[in-house]
Computed example of a mutant assay.
Amino acid sequence: MLLSGTIFGLYVSVGGGPAREHEALAACVEAILDTYGALHKLGADVVIGSDAGIGPVKPHNLFARGVVDLARLGVVPLDALKSMTSLAARPCRTDGRKGRIAASADADLLVVNGDLERDPAAVLDVPAVFRSGIRVC
């Protein structure tokens, strides 16, 4: 899969829900993260995705935690950020207009408090979101 250019998706963050469900998933998370870390070290493209909203332990606010998860595995913070932006746009076939800041690209922006190069967790502190150049929150 690595040699064929397969893009791997990271969907492991958990939170909320009944404690027993959370514990069952959390027990697997470290092993799954280790696998993604090994894939990244081998040169695989790992993107952050979301199966958020499928149940109590997967609420909708987990997507950005993938950046923190990858950085914790040793992925350079800006590469971790690319995993949820420009790199993630490729398998969605929206690269060129999504996941980058450039003329003719959609103006979807997430404003964060902090320096993502120094602190990947800054992606969790979001004071503003812009969709097609219009502030939506």
Rank of each mutant, 00 (worst) to 15 (best):
G37Q: 05
D106G: 04
S104W: 05
E23K: 11
R90A: 09
G133D: 01
F63T: 09
G9C: 12
G53N: 00
L25A: 09
E23M: 08
R100P: 02
K41F: 00
G96S: 13
N61M: 09
H60C: 07
A19H: 14
E30H: 13
D108S: 03
R97D: 09
D34S: 06
S132Y: 07
G5N: 07
A105Y: 02
G74I: 01
R90V: 14
V76D: 14
L109E: 00
R135S: 07
D51E: 04
V136G: 12
D69L: 03
L110E: 01
V57I: 09
L39C: 02
R20T: 10
I48Q: 03
R131V: 07
V14T: 15
S104L: 04
P59E: 06
L78H: 13
A121I: 10
S4A: 10
G96E: 03
A64C: 11
V129K: 07
P56S: 09
R90T: 10
K41Y: 00
R90M: 08
N61K: 12
A26V: 00
E30W: 07
L62K: 13
L42V: 01
G15S: 15
R100Q: 13
G74P: 04
R72Y: 00
H40G: 00
A31K: 13
A26S: 09
N113V: 00
R93D: 10
P59A: 09
R100F: 07
L116Q: 10
A44R: 02
D34V: 02
D34Y: 01
L10N: 12
A38Q: 06
I48V: 09
A103P: 05
L10G: 12
V29L: 07
